[in-house]
Design a binder for these strands. Sequence first.
DNA 1: TCAAAAGTGTTTATTATACACCCATGG
DNA 2: CCATGGGTGTATAATAAACACTTTTGA
Lengths: 253, 253
Amino acid sequence: MSSIQNIDIKNIQEELRKFLEHTKKCLPHISIYTVIFSFNNDNLNVLLLRFGDTQYFSLPGGFVLKNEKIDDASLRILKKRTDLSKLYIEQFTTTGNVENPNEDIYNETLKKMGIVLPDNNLMNQRRISICYYSLIDAAKVNPKGNDFFVSEVKWRSVQKLPELMYDHKLIIEKAISKLQLDMDRKLVSYNLMNETFTMGELQKLYEAVFQREFTRTNFQRKMLSLNILERLDKKYSGESHKAPYLYRFKNIQ
Amino acid sequence: MSSIQNIDIKNIQEELRKFLEHTKKCLPHISIYTVIFSFNNDNLNVLLLRFGDTQYFSLPGGFVLKNEKIDDASLRILKKRTDLSKLYIEQFTTTGNVENPNEDIYNETLKKMGIVLPDNNLMNQRRISICYYSLIDAAKVNPKGNDFFVSEVKWRSVQKLPELMYDHKLIIEKAISKLQLDMDRKLVSYNLMNETFTMGELQKLYEAVFQREFTRTNFQRKMLSLNILERLDKKYSGESHKAPYLYRFKNIQ
DNA sequence: TCAAAAGTGTTTATTATACACCCATGG
DNA sequence: CCATGGGTGTATAATAAACACTTTTGA
C-alpha cells in the first residue's frame, strides 16, 4: 500500500480521466457507501481509505450507474475493493444532510494533488448516501485502492478509528448497531468466520461485535442450543491445555 | 373526498403547472415515500392515495428540495398530507430497482387525464425511493390530497390493502416489520394513541401491529412492569361490566 | 343475580446467569 | 504434577405463559 508521495502524477491524471468518464454514466446526487467488516486479531475491523496525504480516512464508496439496482451498485463497489463477489450485504440507512463536513479538507487536498474536478461533477454536488455494510472473511480478501484520491487502504479496528471524513463516523456507528441487531436475530456471523473455528474464536467475535464479555460456559451452551453448529474433530494447537473442538456452521450452501 | 369525475380540468392543469414548478427545485432521481400509520377501529391503517380513476393506490410521496435534509423533506410531505408538524418519523429502507412496475397504468392514466409531463420531468426518470414511516393519532388528522393525480385519500387497514402501484406493497410490509421492531425496543406506541386510553385499547393496538393475540392478564402485567404508564381515573362507559382504568404514558413532553 | 370485562394472584415452564467441577494437554 | 484453557453439570434468578379467582358494572 503506497503512501501519497509514491503516487505518480501521470497515473493520477489517468485515473482521474477514467473516473470522470465513469461518473458520466452514474446518477447524480446519489452515492453508495459500504462499511466492510472483518474479524481479525480478536477485533472487529473496518476497511478504510486514506484520503490523499491527510490523516483523514473515508469509507469505500461509489455511485450508482443509470441502469443499475442499488444493491448491485453496492456489490460492484465491494468487488472493486475486495475482488470478492456474492458478499453478504445489508442496507442500513440513507443519509442526506445538506452540509458537507470536511469539505475544506477535500478541496485543499485535491488542489494539492493537482486535481481539478469540473463543477458539475458528482463529487462537487450535494449527495444523498445509501449505506450498506458487508461481512467478509478477512483471510479471503486482498484490499485494493485505485481511486485517484486514495493513498492507503487499511483495516482499522472499530475500537480505535482514525479521523473520518464527512459523516462516516456516524455511518460506522449505525452499521455496528445494525450488525448487532442482525447477529441477534439471524445467522450472519458465519460470513465473518473461517469455515471452521473453535468455540473460543466464535466467542471472541461476539465479544468484538457487542463490545462486552460473555460468560464462557453459558456462551457455549447458548450457541450449541441454537442447533446451527456441527462439531468436527478436535484442534490440537500444541499448547498445553485441552484441545478444543472445531465447529462449522450447518446448512451453509 | 372527490372521485376523479369531479376533478375539473382547469384545476388539474393549474395543479400540474405548480407541480412542474416545484419539481424544478428538487433533486432528480430521488423520491421520498411515507407510510403513515394510524390506529382506528381496532385496525392498523395506512394512508393511501387513489391514483387517477384506477383501482390502484399509492403511498404519499414527494421529492427532496435541493437544499433540504431528507428528514425535513419527509416531514414536509407529511405536513402537506396531514397538516400536522413534528410527527414521529422513522426511516426504514431505500429502494432502487431499475424496473418500474405499473408504468403502463401510470402512463395511460395521465394520458386519459390530459396530462403531459415533459420527458425530463422527475416523474419520468428512474427514481430511488427513501422510505419513512410515521405514526399519527387518527383523531388529530384530516387527510388531504392535492396532487393532480390523486382522486381520493383514504385510510386502509393493513389487513386488506387495495392494489398498490409500483413496489408500494413491499414498502408497506417493510414498514410494518420496522414498526414491530421499534415497538419492541422503544416507546413509540404513544404516537398512535389518544392521550388517555384503557389497557384493552392498548392491547388492541399491539394485536393490530403484531397480528397476533396476547393473553389479556399477562399483557396488562407486562405493560405495567415497564413503568411507563400512569394510572388515572376509571372510565365509565355505561356498559354493564367493571369500569377499566384510564392510563396515560408518563414523561411524554 | 347474571353476563361481561377488568383486575389480581398463583403455578409452571422457559431462559438467563453464576459458578463449581472435572478433563485434556504440553512443559 | 501443574498451569491453562475446554467441556459439562447444577443451582438460582429472572422472565414468560397459562389459568384460576375475584371485582365491578348495568340490566
